[in-house]
Nucleic acid binder design. Sequence first.
DNA 1: ACCCTACATTGGACAGAATCTAAGGCAAGG
DNA 2: CCTTGCCTTAGATTCTGTCCAATGTAGGGT
Lengths: 137, 137
Amino acid sequence: MSDLLGRLRERGWRLTAQRRVVAEVLDGDHIHLTADEVHARAAERLPEISRATVYNTLRELVHRGEVVEVSTDGRAKRYDPNARSPHHHLLCARCGLIRDVHPTGDPLSDLPPSQSFGFTVSEVEVTYRGFCPDCAI
Amino acid sequence: MSDLLGRLRERGWRLTAQRRVVAEVLDGDHIHLTADEVHARAAERLPEISRATVYNTLRELVHRGEVVEVSTDGRAKRYDPNARSPHHHLLCARCGLIRDVHPTGDPLSDLPPSQSFGFTVSEVEVTYRGFCPDCAI
DNA sequence: ACCCTACATTGGACAGAATCTAAGGCAAGG
DNA sequence: CCTTGCCTTAGATTCTGTCCAATGTAGGGT
């Protein structure tokens, strides 16, 4: 996610102040923010930015593979700027904290053809649920 | 999920006509229904049942571990009555269909201690995304 | 440097999912 | 069969996310 803006411009992405701010918010902390959290942080720098724009921009970034959408608990989707290196998630069931992990092995190989029921599988998402050190007590 | 009602009564669950119908709907087909689909099917037998009651009952069942909540991308959550045998899910990205799969291998073993960051991991959720035979075209 | 035009943004309305509320209903134990 | 406290109801409300027509603007062409 380092030179996101440069990569996007090369691919003919129209660079606007709003998009720049959204990209910078995502690039800032490597936290997994919800769309409204992204909007709130973007609005600190660009107060007139609208929610629709943030949603549109996030959808664009997901579509271009620069950001991964993570839906944890059926509540708001969260956006993971660390899309370059494939990874999975460690989720705290109490406080909602998400951490990236890089497990060994390939989960796709754990799905034998006899179990794919004619699906054309393109991605696998693995979520480890438990308690983070602070919540385990 | 066979003697669900008996198990619940033993644990002091107040048995009402509405709850009985919801449990029976879930027990019927082993499909993964959304809350509103459960409500629609329950209403066929008990027309005056309210949406809130279905939601409440499903939440109760999830909380008691009798049903698993599957949250797909921002769509409605689906409820999986097959909570007794551990399994994973095949999800169609277009129509939302969910199928149970029983992959080989243990995903938990793919998470080395060096990657668990102090979390006490209790469960793993694996979702294979792709297109079902009807949507692949 | 300026103008065009296609594309982006806005903000409010809208839609779907789920939860909350207050009033009334009823299961289960005594 | 009475009481108590949990359950149910209908509708309002919250929360996410999308859509729309009107307006603004980035960046290429001249």
